[in-house]
């Protein structure tokens, strides 16, 4: 075997374990989901094997699914914007703080040590009728009756922001950390005040991090079903809840497969658009 041949084979050999894992854990199951989406559910709940387009026709033409999908995108977008507005100043503060940066980063990671479901349910104890917030309001005499704050779209967004904010902060922080701070000083020395230097120099340079955080928040937010289930009212469903119901409640795995692929295509399209204009490199930085 020549040296060239051996060198050409080395990447394949080194990549084999990773590619095999991805193939087994991602590609093969996805293939099953694709196959399932063309089957049919019978009246008894059993699946009818075959090639039927019924689930796809229903998923793509029924306005019910379209409306819930649009609502999901709306909620995910609002969540992303709120995360960006709340996350950027926080990330900026951490990046510019001296000495205690590690402690702040540790505090940022702390919520990940608690189960996402527990974190979501904690809002019931905070915003519930007997929760801490209502108790505080009544204790200081601001209200005589507890205010109904839970189980609506706003609390769903709140729960999502709580879940996704660290992802945004970390991405923006990584981006801000990579900016040469002397650039701001240079802008100031040329006559810009601090605010203008931030707007003209720091913000544009940190946009890739903001975009990466936004992408993560959007994709994760649009794919969640626990938050609307725990914090939403009767009509606050997101698209993943439809997949859950089709598969779990209605035992209609074929339709659930078609719906989940639909969501995958939409979110995949968002990722592709991001990759086309900003590239995935920044996202990788934020995840490291």
């Amino acid at each position: 075997m020549t040296v060239e041949t051996r060198e050409a084979r080395q990447p394949i050999i080194l990549l084999t374990p990773a590619l095999s894992t991805i193939g087994l854990l991602l590609i093969v199951p996805l293939g099953f989901v694709v196959v399932y989406s063309f089957w049919l559910r019978t009246a008894t709940g059993a699946d009818q094997v075959g090639f039927f387009l019924d689930n796809w026709v229903e998923s793509l033409t029924d306005p019910f699914y379209r409306d819930i999908l649009l609502n999901t995108i709306k909620i995910a977008l609002i969540t992303t914007v709120v995360c960006a507005l709340a996350g950027y100043p926080t990330a900026y503060f951490i990046a510019r703080s001296n000495g205690n940066r590690l402690v702040l980063l540790l505090l940022l990671m702390l919520p990940f040590w608690i189960s996402y479901i527990i974190r979501t349910m904690s809002w019931i104890n905070i915003l519930g009728v007997s929760g801490a917030f209502n108790w505080a309001l009544m204790s200081v005499g601001l209200t005589s009756e507890p205010i109904q704050m839970l189980y609506n779209e706003a609390t769903v967004i709140l729960g999502l922001v709580h879940f996704l904010l660290p992802f945004m902060i970390l991405n923006v922080y990584v981006s801000l950390e990579g900016i040469d701070r002397t650039l701001e000083d240079a802008a100031c020395s040329l006559g810009a005040n601090r605010w203008r230097a931030f707007l003209e120099v720091t913000l544009p340079l940190s946009l890739p991090g903001l975009a990466a955080g936004g992408l993560l928040c959007f994709v994760l937010g649009a794919g969640t079903y626990i938050t609307p289930l725990v914090l939403g009212g009767p009509t606050d469903a997101m698209f993943a809840n439809l997949v859950f119901e089709a598969i779990i409640t209605q035992l209609n795995w074929p339709l659930g497969s078609a719906l989940s692929l639909m969501l995958l295509v939409v979110l995949g399209a968002v990722v592709m658009v991001y990759n086309r204009y900003l590239g995935m490199t920044q996202l990788m930085k934020g995840l490291q």
Binding site: R41, P234, T249
Partner: peptide
């Protein structure tokens, strides 16, 4: 059980405001 497929699906929609 005879109505399960239809009703569970319809309820899924009614539940979400339809």
């Amino acid at each position: 059980n005879g109505n399960e497929a239809e009703w569970s699906k319809t309820f899924g929609r009614v539940q979400k405001g339809y």
